[in-house]
Amino acid sequence: MMPGMLAYIVRRVFYAIPILIGVNLITFALFFVVNTPDDMARIHLGAKHVTAEAIERWKVEHGYDKPLFFNPEAAGLAKLGDTLFVDKSLKLFVFDFGQADDGRDIGREITTRMWPSLAIALPTFLVGLLAYISFALTMVFFRATYLDFAGVVLCVVLMSISGLFYIIGGQYLLGKLWHLVPVSGFEPGLAGLKFLLLPVLVGVISGLGDSSRFYRTLFLEEIHKDYVRTARAKGLSERIVLFRHVLGNAMIPILTGAVVVIPRLFLGSLIVESFFGIPGLGSYTIDAIQAQDFAIVRAMVFLGSVLYILGLLLTDLSYTLVDPRVRLE
């Protein structure tokens, strides 16, 4: 790695700090100022048992009994330190997520639940990328023919159908009617492979229309450039022109566009995981939302931002790998 690139990474990491502080402040405001601890307690206790004492007791039990930013009762620096902001928000920076309402450690939950999420999301991402590029390239190879037209129509049809349809349709057809794979469930290790097939397939198909159509546009834009004409003038076959020249250049926007989501693969998909009963971070988040467990939701929002910033950094670095013109300094 060149020293220029190292300096670039260090600088970008520094740039990330103010962004994360901003994210942290905004989430804190949303979770504690808009929706005060009193409100949280009322939601949890339900309409019947709400008394001032019950609210106070709930807040003490769950650690929400401190002031937001300034604690006049504490001594010295603890006036600032012994507050909800430090307790609940600043600790996110060291990935100390605290406890969920059921008393379990959120950090530990995340580290165990991210693997099932990854087991679904990573194959979906890789198989999807390959499928979308191949499909788009096939359409481009047959460009301006009925095959190409049919491909575009198929893409629009696939895009127009809700993702839920693919999940339910897949479960019905492959699970219930043909008994090829289990309808839902999860098991760690190789034995769990049969549980992964359907969610991955559904994930790939639901993205097919959108991505293939976009990649086809990228390829077509590239195919009319002068250097492609030069490649043809050299006497290269259409196959080599497409694979070596067009694909080589179109991969720059495709790859760099895909890299940004890689870190977020850990978080899984909210819908797929809850429909297929995968014990990953996606279903964890959905469950937390349903259970009004703000500590978990807050942790996931913050984690999502960190991973997104990481994804943007990786995107910029990936340019240097696929495009010789880009040098980061």
């Binding site: 030069t230 080589g248 250049n249």
Partner: peptide, 10 residues
Amino acid sequence: EPMLSLNPVM
């Protein structure tokens, strides 16, 4: 156009 007639990534 010599600027555009060569493949930029080869």
